[in-house]
Amino acid sequence: MGTLTTMAGRKQFDVDEALRRAMLVFWRWGYSEASIDRLTEGTGLGRGSLYGTFGDKSNLFRKSLLRYAETYHPLYEQALSGPHPNPSAVMAAFLQVSLNRIADPKVPDGCLLTISATQFPALDAEGQAMVRGMIDLLLARLAQALRAAGATEQEATELALCTLATNKSLAVLSRAGFAGKDLATVAAAAARIPTTPTSVDI
């Protein structure tokens, strides 16, 4: 899978697998620290093959980020599709996707979109637009699901921001070595926010 082979004196490789491996390099190191040497080592490609196939580092990053979104954002879509009995359930479902990804030992800790947002100034204009666009799409989809679960327009806007902020904090805390049970506690606390004002019987 994805290994280099030689046919008729030319190196052949699986482009999709090479892109997946490049995605993992950017995910682990972030754009700034994902050097060409790390990318060639991670993908198993020489510089010529890397540049010839994917273009420069910025272009490879954008392709990797798109691959990341194509892999993980459908899981968020599935979680948000519902039906959900209340806004808390929407938030819990969304954050559970994040917890599941963080718990996967086959991928780096954190989130490629999150680490890319933290290195926003290092990205070119197209990369910045892609990062912000993906965040905005998640926010819009969250708000839509929250409204469907009974939140008002203002509540949906506020809770979508809260949920996304929690999502990003989980990614950062996981990279700092916080245990899965601690991350689950953060997610559960955030999901309780919508019901807190009405939890006292009158």
Rank of each mutant, 00 (worst) to 15 (best):
T3L: 08
Q12L: 15
F13I: 08
D16N: 12
L19T: 02
A22F: 03
M23K: 10
W27D: 00
Y31H: 08
D37W: 04
R38D: 12
E41T: 14
L45K: 12
T53W: 03
K57A: 05
K57G: 01
K63A: 09
K63E: 06
Y68F: 14
Y72C: 01
L75F: 08
E77R: 14
Q78D: 14
Q78M: 10
S81E: 15
S81D: 15
G82H: 00
H84I: 07
P85E: 12
N86S: 10
L95F: 05
N100S: 15
D109V: 10
T114K: 10
T114F: 11
T114I: 09
T118E: 07
F120D: 09
P121Y: 08
G127A: 10
Q128D: 08
M130K: 06
G133T: 15
A140Q: 10
A145W: 00
G150C: 06
T152N: 07
A156F: 02
A160S: 14
L164C: 13
L164F: 08
L164R: 01
N167Y: 11
R175D: 05
G177A: 11
K181Q: 12
D182V: 01
D182M: 08
L183H: 02
A184R: 01
P194I: 03
T196E: 12
V200W: 02
D201K: 10
